[in-house]
Design a protein around this nucleic acid. Structure first.
Lengths: 205, 205
DNA sequence: TTTAAAATTTGAACAATGTTCATTTAATTT
DNA sequence: AAATTAAATGAACATTGTTCAAATTTTAAA
């Protein structure tokens, strides 16, 4: 099995190399500006090879999308160590916003792109597991806040979705340059200031 | 001047015809799926003609983008007749969400697309006037809420941006199919339910 | 009315992109 | 060493946005 094993490993490595090259170019030049030829050049392989390892461009997007969730999900789960749920809720938001600022293209891919979702549809309702897991960290935290008397009269799921929406909305408007567009000063400052306002809103009993 | 006038009118009409055809196809098939050739076919003109009237595809997007804001802005300004600012704030949100649900492609173009914003950049910081005007309706309303004792300890601009973010975030997650993705039941129901949760949050003094 | 000039429309042609697949090259097995 | 299998290649295709010289139509002039 040694050769077979080695081959399998090599295949995995090339696959990873393609992903790595793709991610580098995505981050450097944006997703739409990155062509398959670019990726092939970047890793010194031919276009055809890329297609041996990935069905199409969307597959690459989908894979990176999953990697992005691994990272964000990891950062979120660390926060489960924050005991106070309301404090944790604020921290989750801050980490989320920070992730979007530091990895705008990745964020875009994960939450704004149509492509990877269409991919999911094709695979007969395969689950958006990474996304769900991340959302559940939030939902659990909101639930614990409610147990402490916050959010009286609210419904768990719609409220959790609302909270996600707020932070996501900020990040999207930031990434898609709408903060500049309405003259709200330095975009990054406004982004974090707005999150603080939101935390204030949430803290009202 | 009769002939010159007529010609000018005809030019305007053809321009409008192109936009109308483009919008129809956008709504029918989505923006990315609509090609210049499609638009030309739709109105029975050649590709070249489209390029006589519009510099490139982005120009068409930008024009439709402006039309979208005319519509949304109009709907918002009607709400200025609602005397109670907090009530108006809720109504603004509802109208906004309704707009997004009824015109998802238009909404996407206005708030999520990169293209029209790049267009703005090129034209040397031309103002996003329609967008600003719409945001100002919100800001003014928030200001009036504050005058009534709501949002004590909050800052006007970041808070207004936060509110916009929440509603925008919901709409974007809806349009980009992320509500389905986390199994939150019927997307449209969740969207409106979440907005009601948000209104509850805002009403806390 | 006829002809010249100007304006408008056209669609073939180009470059860039995602994608495919017959062919070539390399690796493995006999 | 030869035959077989696996992997990699890049030329070629279809589809896009875009351009522009040529054809057509409209207007103005003779």
């Amino acid at each position: 099995m040694s050769i077979t094993e080695r081959k399998a490993k090599e295949k995995e490595e090339l696959r990873a190399l393609i992903l790595q090259g793709a991610k580098k170019l995505f981050v450097e030049n944006g997703i739409e500006q990155t062509t398959i030829r670019n990726i092939a050049d970047e890793i010194s392989y031919s276009v055809g090879t890329v297609y041996v390892y990935f069905k199409d461009k969307d597959s690459i997007l989908h894979e990176l999308h999953t990697l992005g969730f691994k990272q964000l999900g990891g950062e979120m789960r660390v926060l489960m160590s924050v005991a106070e749920p309301m404090e944790r809720l604020a921290a989750i938001g801050r980490v989320y916003v920070r992730f979007a600022v530091d990895n705008p293209d990745m964020y875009d891919l994960m939450f704004n792109m149509k492509a990877p979702m269409e991919f999911l549809k094709k695979v007969e309702e395969e689950e958006w597991n990474e996304g769900k897991a991340t959302f559940n960290v939030l939902k659990t935290t909101v639930e614990q806040c409610m147990a402490q008397g916050y959010f009286a009269g609210h419904q768990l799921e719609p409220l959790s979705f609302t909270i996600w929406s707020t932070v996501h909305g900020m990040c999207s408007l930031y990434i898609r340059d709408r903060i500049k567009a309405v003259n709200l000063g330095d975009p990054e400052l406004m982004l974090f200031a707005a999150h603080e306002e939101f935390v204030k809103l949430l803290n009202k009993k």
